[in-house]
């Protein structure tokens, strides 16, 4: 870790007027500073900013500094969001990590985190060892020659499923961006991870009202039961009437370079009967365009299966038919 200057602004105006990397829960930033992956000269501790509050009166409005654990246990939060949060990290980390910071998590690719190796995301143009190296955890969707790292956030997947938006503040004022548009595919510039402009700060997360999203779930498949990133995850919300799907939201994590919305699956589900067969037919579209690497080919099948599982679990009290 390199030495740095620490300041602690007390207003958003002061924060965005200042220079330096924002520090909230510190669960990503400090970690990467210890590894010398991030070497900011100036760090702004924003924990004193008035960016709190959980408002469920009309959809969901979350202050960016709300802790993951507080959001997760709030009774008015859609199940897919609380489920994604509760399956993230560990209780200790959830108690520290902010919801805004969660959306700014950096890659968990082991090459990104190891400064002795090449990595286009950390050191543009240096190369991508993961393409031919240890890539079991890496993405099959949204990849490029330059980068195949997955996006690590769980709750971002749930928020993308529900058309979540974020409010960004800067010295120039505030703007709102759909989270789905905020994250950028790696392309030739994997080091540009999002649409954040210099000095901008996430102040609020907004989820539009979607009453049927009370029927939603987050299924996370991983190598151990807790405290581990997803091999594949699925955020699903279903509007079911008369044993048929009226509307659906489906997004997946752990398989793509950004939180990945599956609109084709959603379209296939609309009007479909609530049966395992229909769910399998819709989920068959989930991995369209997938480009597996040497060690992560299983994610193609796992992706389809995870979507089916989430749909089945969400409709367990509905009649289902099995073909296998």
């Amino acid at each position: 870790m390199q030495s740095f200057e620490l300041t602690a602004p007390t207003s958003v105006d002061d924060a965005v007027a200042g220079a330096g990397t924002y520090l909230a829960g510190g669960t990503t930033l400090v970690d990467l500073m210890k590894l010398d992956v991030l070497t900011p000269r100036h760090v702004q501790d924003i924990n004193a900013l008035p960016l709190r509050g959980i408002d469920t009166a009309d959809g969901l409005r979350l202050g960016a500094l709300e802790r993951m654990s507080d959001v997760a246990r709030h009774p008015g939060v859609y199940p897919v969001i609380s489920g994604a949060l509760l399956q993230s990290a560990s209780q200790q980390l959830r108690n520290m990590a902010s919801i805004g910071g969660n959306l700014m998590q950096r890659s968990r690719c082991s090459y990104f985190r190891d400064v002795t190796t090449a990595c286009n995301r950390r050191d543009p143009g240096s190369g991508c060892p993961a393409r031919s190296g240890a890539n079991r955890m890496h993405a099959v969707l949204g990849t490029s020659e330059a980068c195949v790292a997955t996006h690590p956030s769980d709750v971002a997947v749930a928020l993308v499923a529900l058309d979540g938006q974020i409010t960004l503040a800067s010295a120039a004022g505030t703007r709102m961006v759909a989270l789905r548009d905020f994250y950028r595919l790696p392309g030739d510039t994997p080091h540009v991870e999002n649409d954040l402009r210099p000095g901008e700060l996430i102040t609020e997360i907004v989820v539009p009202r979607l009453d049927w999203a009370v029927n939603s779930t987050y299924v996370k498949v991983r190598d151990r039961q807790s405290y581990e990133f997803a091999l594949c995850s699925a955020a699903v919300a279903l509007d079911v009437r008369d044993a048929h799907v009226v509307d659906a939201r489906v997004a997946v994590g752990g398989v793509a370079t950004v939180p990945w919305r599956l609109t084709a699956v959603e379209t296939a589900l609309r009007g479909a009967p609530v049966t395992e067969d229909a769910f399998q037919d819709a989920a068959a579209l989930a991995a369209d365009g997938a480009e597996p690497l040497s060690a992560n080919g299983f994610k193609v099948a796992l992706l389809r299966r995870t979507v089916v599982r989430a749909l089945c679990e969400l409709t367990q009290d509905e009649p289902t038919g099995s073909r296998g």
Binding site: C232, R305, R309
Partner: peptide, 9 residues
């Protein structure tokens, strides 16, 4: 072992 996603617990 989950029949859809294969986790062994």
């Amino acid at each position: 072992v989950h029949r859809w996603t294969g986790e062994a617990r």
